[in-house]
Amino acid sequence: MFYPNSPQTSPQLTQIPYGQQYAMMQRQIQQPYHPFATTEPQARLYPYHYQGPIQQEQGGFITQQSTAASPQYVQMRVTPVDQSIMSGYPNQTANGSSSSSFNYNIHPQQQQQQQQQQQQLRHHAMPVGSVPLQDDRYRKQLIVNYLAPDVTSTDLHELFSRFGELDGARIIYDKQTNMSKGYGFVYFCHAEDAKEAVERMSGYEFHGKWLKVGYSTNPLNIVPSNSSPYVHAGSRGAAG
């Protein structure tokens, strides 16, 4: 039997160049792979992502010199942007860049009308829970959420009447099932009393439920100042 490094198959040491006398086997001759043993700084910083320098080929596509990437890492192929796409944008300079302001050559009167329309939209648009300043009635009506099913309009009136005089209180019921929808409205005579009720009743436990109280901004629920107070009856038909 002959071994790869046996004296019968191995040459004389004098015939082997210096430095390879003890590297006779194939696994010894093959050098191990060192990912950080390279002179390129990109490979030292990113050993798993770097795959060699990027070269520009004919046709405008950018390719990489090395083989496919590892399945664990996804390499994105980048193509140059066609400058003709950006030619339609206004205020574009000769080098292809555009300024931040756009001039669509709008007539001054049209621009003024658009600004007025935007101001009107901001004036009428009102986020949930906010209180408008032009109508004091919005500051007097509250919406009470997360009410228990057994709470009546009379219970709601008695709960909030300790903060001040009320114009009314009612629970909203479903017309088909005649069941409470879980929320109601309270109408105060003074805005200061309503503000105190919002601050003190939010998070209050009532009939096993934690109440959420806020201003009601729905104009359909506003009680006119010259109208008669609501009837605080315990029956659902009268309260709904």
Rank of each mutant, 00 (worst) to 15 (best):
M76W: 08
R170C: 01
N95W: 12
Q116W: 14
Y230S: 06
V74L: 09
Y18D: 14
V74W: 15
A197M: 00
V151E: 00
D155V: 11
Q114V: 05
R139E: 04
M24F: 04
A197P: 01
I62R: 15
I62Y: 13
A238L: 10
V213Q: 00
F2R: 15
N218G: 01
Q92E: 04
L142W: 01
P132M: 14
M86N: 12
Q109L: 09
S202V: 08
Q26I: 02
Q42H: 10
Q112N: 06
G234P: 10
V198F: 14
Q12K: 12
L142S: 00
S130E: 08
S202H: 05
Y173D: 00
L13K: 15
E57T: 10
G214A: 04
S202K: 03
Q109W: 04
N178A: 12
Y230C: 09
E158T: 06
G182W: 00
L142R: 00
S153A: 04
Y73Q: 13
F36I: 12
N5G: 07
K140A: 02
K212W: 01
E40T: 10
Y73W: 05
S235A: 11
Q115S: 07
F36M: 07
Y104C: 09
V223A: 04
Y18Q: 09
F188L: 01
V186Q: 01
H107W: 11
E196N: 07
F185G: 01
Q20T: 05
T217S: 06
P80T: 15
Q112E: 06
T177S: 07
Q26P: 07
Q176C: 11
S84W: 03
R27G: 04
P7R: 14
Y22V: 08
G208N: 05
I171C: 06
L13I: 10
R236A: 05
E158M: 13
I85M: 08
I29C: 15
Q64P: 09
Q141K: 02
Q51Y: 04
Q15S: 09
V231S: 06
P149Y: 10
Q109M: 11
Q92W: 03
Q58D: 09
Q20Y: 04
L142M: 03
R139N: 05
P4K: 13
L45N: 15
S66F: 06
V128N: 09
A233S: 09
D135L: 05
P53R: 13
G168T: 01
S10D: 04
A191G: 04
Q58A: 05
H232W: 15
M25T: 10
H190Q: 04
M24S: 14
G164F: 02
T38F: 07
D193R: 15
T63Q: 06
N91E: 06
I62E: 09
Y50G: 15
H157R: 12
S227Q: 09
E205K: 10
H190I: 06
T63W: 04
S228F: 14
P11F: 04
P7V: 07
W210V: 02
Q20E: 04
S180H: 09
P47Y: 01
G19F: 03
P7E: 05
Q115L: 10
A69L: 10
I29L: 06
S70K: 14
Q176E: 03
N178R: 07
N226I: 04
A94I: 09
F2K: 15
P71R: 14
Q31W: 08
N103I: 06
S180Q: 02
Y138F: 05
Y3F: 06
Q141I: 00
I85K: 13
I54A: 11
S10P: 08
S235V: 11
H49C: 04
R122L: 04
H123A: 07
S227A: 08
M126E: 07
H190R: 11
Q83L: 04
A233E: 10
E57S: 09
L121T: 06
G203F: 04
K209A: 02
G60K: 14
Q31Y: 05
Q65T: 12
N95R: 12
